[in-house]
Amino acid sequence: MRRLIAVLAAFTLSLGMLTACSPGSSQSTSADNAKTVDAYLSALIPKKYQGATIQVATDATLAPTEFVDPETQQLVGADIDLINAAAEVLKIKVTFVNVPFEKVISGVTKGTYPVGASSIVDTRSREKKMDLVTYLKSSPRFFVAKGNTFTKTSELCGKTVAVAAGGVYVDEVKTLSATCPKASPITVEQLTDQSAATQAVVDGKAFASVVSGPIAAWTVKESDGALELAGEPLAPFTYGFAIAKKSGLAPAFLTAVNSLITQGKYTEILKKWGLEDSAVKASTINPRTRKKTS
């Protein structure tokens, strides 16, 4: 896998050179280069998916990465744009399936969905069940109802923190709770999705919620003053597009994401959604497993 990733990375760096026609290049040379790129990209797509529409599972409650536009009722966000752009690079068709986060993870694990795009944190345990093609990094943040601010995470002891079920934030809060006095642990309220977790904070049913920094900031911004960020950012996470192990699609999406980075489209999309500070220099597959074995 490591050798394959290195080869793909090297080829991706040359995609821009192959597809761009220099002032002195002939039209025939440009056309030949385009054919070479198309042939290579086509070969990356397993036969069962060639000509088919690939389902991408997403939990569209995580603005600004994936959410439902209230005016158009269409799925929008950075993840949606990146997947669509990757599909354009690979010349494949994708369709999004909006399901709760737990079903995104279980669906990709079982192969029900070939791809998952839902602000999925890369962990070693997940890399055993699926391939993670990295594309973002950020530090999780807590948010609370206006006026309920706190500075230290120890102040959460004895309080309720609402999180989306199936996410890594469940374990993050449980880890924090383990440092609390036995008489006042943190109560972890696992809800269907992040929208429900946010609503629990607004309604006073939970003291706080925690999610990736950009999502927390967006949630606070859109709350009309009802919410505010609190505490210090937690240790940063890397996020990846989840690819079903047996699908064989990970190399294709790795190449596509790195192509978007090289060509500048990646930066353009992140700036559109205010995520430029979460950019990665290059995408890779299952970096946690690779670090452990290298």
Rank of each mutant, 00 (worst) to 15 (best):
L13M: 14
T262D: 15
Y169G: 01
G77T: 04
T153C: 02
T95Y: 01
E276W: 04
S294D: 15
E127M: 02
K205A: 12
L75P: 03
K110V: 14
P140W: 03
Y40K: 09
G16K: 08
A206N: 08
K245P: 05
T267K: 09
S259A: 14
K152A: 15
A256T: 13
T112H: 05
L254F: 08
A208C: 05
Y135E: 05
S25A: 15
E228K: 03
T192M: 07
K245I: 09
V202M: 06
F237Y: 14
S30Y: 08
K48S: 13
A86D: 09
P236F: 09
S118P: 00
G240N: 07
Y239N: 06
L254D: 07
T12N: 03
T149W: 00
L156K: 01
D122L: 05
F207G: 01
L270Y: 09
K174I: 11
S212L: 08
G231W: 00
G24Q: 11
P181S: 10
L13F: 11
P233Y: 05
F142E: 09
L62N: 07
E102L: 13
T160V: 15
T109P: 04
V280H: 05
Q263D: 14
K271F: 08
V94W: 02
A250F: 04
T284G: 10
S195P: 00
E71G: 12
V201R: 00
P185K: 00
T112V: 14
V94N: 10
R290H: 13
V220H: 00
G204N: 11
S209R: 01
K174H: 11
S26K: 10
C157S: 11
T72V: 06
I215P: 00
I285V: 15
A200P: 01
A10R: 11
S25E: 15
L13Y: 11
A57I: 13
Q73E: 14
I261M: 03
G248Q: 04
Y266H: 07
I105T: 11
N286H: 03
R288C: 07
S106K: 01
T293W: 02
D122V: 15
T192I: 14
A31Y: 05
T58S: 11
Y239I: 13
K128V: 15
A6V: 10
L176I: 14
K110I: 12
A178I: 06
D171T: 14
T219Q: 10
S294K: 10
P185Y: 02
N98H: 12
S139Q: 11
S139T: 13
G147S: 06
Y113D: 10
V280A: 04
Q263G: 11
P214L: 04
S118L: 05
L229R: 02
T58L: 02
T179M: 03
K292G: 09
P46T: 10
P287S: 08
S22I: 13
T289K: 04
V7G: 09
W218E: 15
A256G: 09
S177K: 04
T289S: 13
L156V: 12
Y49T: 06
V168A: 12
E228I: 07
E66F: 06
V144Q: 02
D193G: 12
N286S: 08
G240Y: 05
Y40H: 12
